[in-house]
Structures are given as structure tokens and as C-alpha cells.
Simulated scan of single mutants.
Amino acid sequence: MSFSTANTQAVGAPLTRCATFLVLTVNDNDGAVPDAFGTVRSALGSVGDLAKNVAIRDSNAGFSVTAGIGSRVWDGVTGLPRPAELHPFVEVRGHTHVAPSTPGDLLFHIRAERRDLCFEFERQILHALGDAVVVADVTVGFRYFDARDLLGFVDGTANPVGQAVNESVLVTASDDRAAGSSAVDGSYVVVQKYVHELGRWTSLPTEKQESIIGRTKFDNLELDDCAVEAQKPHKQLATITDGRGKEHGILRDNMPFGSPAEGEYGSYFIGYSRYLWVTEKMIQRMFVGDPPGKHDRILDFSKALTGSVFFAPSTEVLDGLGAD
């Protein structure tokens, strides 16, 4: 799944055993923290160096970090033209279920084969940011068996591979110029935190679970699409095409999280995309339904708690922020 492009953040880093999803808000209200934006710029500019300091402790641990910046603070933090599609997460309210919009100015997607390396980067970046930020959410994820979610199905099967990763994930300056902007290269990032009613889900027969997901549970084979008049499976609703019939993919790096002792079972959705509208349409189809009213049946067992949008700019941009 990995790819490399000059100055690109580690958007397409391979799936690891551990991940931390750290969402922060900038504490810039009423001058509570003098020069909060300046502190954030300096910390973002140091991400590359901090990542090297952590990664060197185990060069085989696949450590990487991706930093994203939200719409509310993009102008104040970067001083750069806004990416053409960057805006706050828009709440999606279906007849039965809601995808909420929640605060988020900064995202750090921290990945490694070792939990301690994720911990160490989180500690160092929060120290650098100090009281200029407030933690909105922190979720620690883990790989579950052969990349399955806690519902028991393999996750990320539809991810693009090879050259298709670049085409699905990387925004280029030419993309934004065509949309009336001249923003830098990067990738749009959408995150949502879901919790599952695992007891209800596991009480379903396997065949029923498979009809909801659209794949077989044991060997991860794709099932035939259902009839239009029925509620479509998750797999079908998450397949997005444009007006010309061209299919558009996103890159997911979802992770399970939870605590059996606390009765918490969840999945953290994170999707990187070249076009934000693709991920937004996917969420719209899930919650509103296609046709409207025929929502994704997985939502009858999984509730969305958060929803935020970020733009992950190039490493060149991040490094430049620390030069002020």
C-alpha cells in the first residue's frame, strides 16, 4: 500500500500494529494564550525532526506521522492559499442516523509497529505545543488479527494499490488551480470515531452480517450487489463514481480500538483523498441512503461520535512553518 512522492507526508505508509489518532483544537480564544498560532507554527515545523528522533530508536518499527490542519486555523497557521475544498466537516443527518461534526484544528496520525514509539511522539509534540492547544480526542488503535475490524470483517479491502494510490490520494497544485485556488500539494483527511454495539452485532447470523457488509466474513470475498430497491450493503454504498461513471477511491487506514472491561468497542475511520467530495459523498450515501431512507445497515450497530476534516500539506510546507 505504500508509495513515495517527493515532499509528500507519510500518507500511504503501510498499515502498522499500533496507531494514535490525536485531534487538537488551538487555544486562540480571547488571547488566552499569547501567540498561540506562533507556537503551533513552530511545533508543526518541528514535526520532521521530532519524527526522526523517535524513528531512530528502532529503524525496523515503521514509525511515521502525518499532520493535518483544519479549516478554522488554516489561514492563521499557514498564511497560504486555502486548499480548494477545505472546510469544516458538514453534519450529515439521515432519517435514522447522524454523522456529527466535531471540533478539530490539528490532526496527528501516528503509526508504528511499537506502541511506545507512538507514545513518545505524542508526548514530544504535546510538549512542543504546550497550552496553545486543547486535546479534543485521542484514540489508540491496534491491528486486530489479519487487519479485521471488531465486527470481524477485513477492513480496507477496497483501498487503491500501486499507482492508483497517488491518483486517489494526492492533491496537486493543478487540481486546485482548476478549482480556483493555488494551494500547495497534499491530501484531504476525514476522521470519524465509531462505537459498536457488539453484543447485538454478534447475535446476528453470519449470513446476515455478510449481507450488511457485502463480503464474506471468513475469506473476504465480495458478494454480488443487491437489488436497487433493497438497502444496499456497506460495500456498495461506499463505492463512489462521478457523473461520467468513473470510480473514485480513497485510502483508509482504519484501526479498531476499545476496552472489553469498559464495554467499549469501536473503529476509527480515517480516509485520505485527492477530492474531499468523494469521502463526503460516501458518508452522505451511508447516512442518508441511496435511495434516501435506505441507510447503511451497519449504522444500526455502529454510532458515529466525531467528524472532522483536515488538509495534510507537503513536508516542505510543514518544514517552512518553523522558519518564521
Rank of each mutant, 00 (worst) to 15 (best):
F3W: 13
T8N: 06
Q9C: 04
A13R: 08
C18W: 08
A19F: 05
V23N: 04
T25G: 14
D28G: 11
A32S: 14
V33S: 12
D35I: 01
A36E: 05
T39C: 08
T39I: 14
S42F: 07
A43S: 12
L44P: 00
S46M: 14
D49R: 12
K52V: 02
A55Y: 01
G62F: 03
I69C: 03
V73M: 12
G76T: 11
T78Q: 10
P81R: 12
P88A: 11
V92F: 05
R93Q: 15
T96R: 15
P103N: 08
G104Y: 00
L107W: 00
H109Q: 15
H109K: 14
I110E: 15
R111D: 01
E113D: 15
C118Q: 10
F119R: 14
F119W: 14
F121I: 00
E122N: 09
E122C: 13
L129P: 07
D131C: 10
V133W: 05
A136K: 02
V138P: 01
V138Q: 09
G141F: 03
G141M: 05
R143T: 10
R143W: 00
L151F: 03
G152F: 00
F153L: 11
D155Y: 04
D155Q: 06
G156W: 13
A164P: 04
A164K: 13
S168K: 09
T172N: 02
T172H: 04
T172Q: 07
A178T: 14
A178R: 14
S181M: 05
S182Y: 04
A183E: 11
V190E: 10
V191F: 03
K193F: 01
Y194W: 15
L198P: 01
W201C: 05
S203E: 15
S203D: 13
L204H: 08
P205I: 09
K208L: 07
Q209Y: 05
S211N: 06
I213F: 05
G214P: 00
F218D: 11
F218G: 03
L221F: 06
L223Y: 08
D225E: 07
A227R: 02
A230Y: 07
Q231L: 05
H234C: 06
H234Y: 04
A238L: 11
K246Y: 13
E247S: 11
E247G: 10
H248D: 04
D253T: 11
N254H: 07
E262H: 10
G263N: 09
E264D: 07
G266C: 01
G271V: 01
R274I: 02
R274E: 06
W277N: 06
Q284D: 14
F287D: 02
G289N: 12
R297V: 06
R297A: 07
F301K: 10
S302C: 15
K303C: 09
K303L: 10
T306V: 06
F310E: 00
S314W: 00
V317C: 00
D319Q: 10
G322R: 03
